[in-house]
């Protein structure tokens, strides 16, 4: 169980605040007014059917997509519109993609060192130190000189996590990190994520891994058709859901608790 945050008392700084977030793709309403808070040290899990807006919200959080309505606040300030300021914000958020998106022309070590070197412009020695440390942290120190093509899916995703961590972010955003993995390798990635959570990293995780959300999550938001239909601690969502929609969704997954 990760560090529990007393939401009712409102303790713990709000790292991210979503207020009435609206996003459209042409005629399609991807987000129809989303309200959600993410507190420091919390693991917030976003669950729900495909196309319900979970990933969209995540991509709006670091400005990969723009929003048409509502606000997103990060560490007390609205997300900037200016590209340069937005880039600075992105360096404080780490993102992990479903398709890993490691840079195939760089080794694992070079992938992890790339952010600090090119974006943060740290000295080469420092970038190398961080890369080595982060790869060790995810258990892949010996794979440092390997290219992504020589790594399994689970290993690639762990390198991707290390790459995001090397930037020393304040929050980690995970977009279905295990959906593209073989069942055997899902575990190694979830373990890394759990260890991160135990250390107190603020995390927003879009996932279909209900066991993970139940055990590691501090707060769960259920999405449907661009809205959050229910949110609360895992206990509530999984054991005693209050809405029909949530019950339906979990039922379809064969969730028996």
């Amino acid at each position: 169980m990760s560090v529990s945050v007393d939401r009712a008392k409102g303790a713990g700084a709000k790292i991210i605040r979503y207020r009435g977030v609206v996003k459209r793709y042409g005629d399609f309403q991807a987000l129809a007014g989303v309200d959600l808070d993410v507190h420091a040290g919390e693991v917030v899990c976003l669950i729900g059917p495909s196309g319900s807006g979970k990933s969209t919200l995540l991509r709006c959080t670091n400005g990969l997509e723009s929003i048409e309505g509502g606000d997103i606040e990060f560490e007390g300030a609205l997300l900037p519109k200016d590209e340069r300021a937005l880039r600075a914000v992105r360096t404080r958020m780490g993102m992990v993609f479903q398709s890993f998106e490691l840079f195939p022309h760089l080794t694992a070590h070079e992938n992890v060192a790339e952010g600090p070197r090119t974006v943060l412009r740290v000295k080469l020695a420092e970038a190398d130190r961080r890369a080595a440390a982060m790869l060790a942290k995810v258990g892949l120190a010996e794979k440092a000189p390997n290219y992504p093509s020589a790594l399994s899916g689970g290993q690639q995703q762990r390198v991707a996590i290390a790459r995001a961590l090397a930037m020393e972010p304040d929050v980690m955003l995970f977009d279905e990190p295990t959906s593209a993995l073989d069942p055997e390798t899902i575990g190694e990635v979830l373990n890394v994520m759990k260890a991160l959570a135990d250390e107190g990293m603020t995390m927003v995780v879009v996932t279909h891994e209900m066991t993970f959300a139940r055990r590691v999550g501090d707060w769960v938001a259920v999405f449907d058709a661009g809205r959050i239909v229910e949110q609360g601690p895992p206990r509530q969502i999984f054991d005693a859901p209050t809405t029909e929609r949530t019950r339906d969704f979990l039922g379809h997954l064969g969730w028996t608790g």
Partner: peptide, 17 residues
């Protein structure tokens, strides 16, 4: 792939970088 550019931008790189 687009995802490569997105991953780079998520790290905070500019388009040119």
């Amino acid at each position: 792939r687009r995802g490569q550019v997105e991953a780079a931008m998520a790290l905070g790189m500019s388009r040119t970088q």
